[in-house]
Amino acid sequence: MPNEYPARRRSGWWLRNPRYFMFQMREIGGVVSALYGLVLLNLLMQLSAGESAYNSFLTTLRTPPVLYLNLVFFGFVVWHAITWFMLIGKAQPIRLTREPLPWKIVFGINLILWFVVSGAVVYLIFGGM
């Protein structure tokens, strides 16, 4: 079509709407989750390399800059988890009755399960301390 103005996505589109911003944060949270996976893989590699290599890596992880970075990354991962829990009831509506369960109920159930499982894991790791 002559002289039509082509469709162009504006730069900074994700800052124009709070829901786009939340979506972008969710996606960044996905990348951060993958980074956490790489850290764990590296931890295993250091473990196989010997005790001193493992301890040295743990010391690095405990330095303040890495701890602060972890805090930020943890925030992203929590947001990633929460936003996906919010989507579960919308992506696959659960029909126990004629009408599907409202997504907020599914979200609430998932949050409770998440806290219970996380609490159990924390207890298993630190319970004996």
Partner: peptide
């Protein structure tokens, strides 16, 4: 509307 080519003013091409 975003994501569509503009034909004139507010009219977009939705082919």
């Amino acid at each position: 509307l975003s994501n569509f080519p503009i034909l004139k003013d507010l009219v977009v091409d939705f082919d």
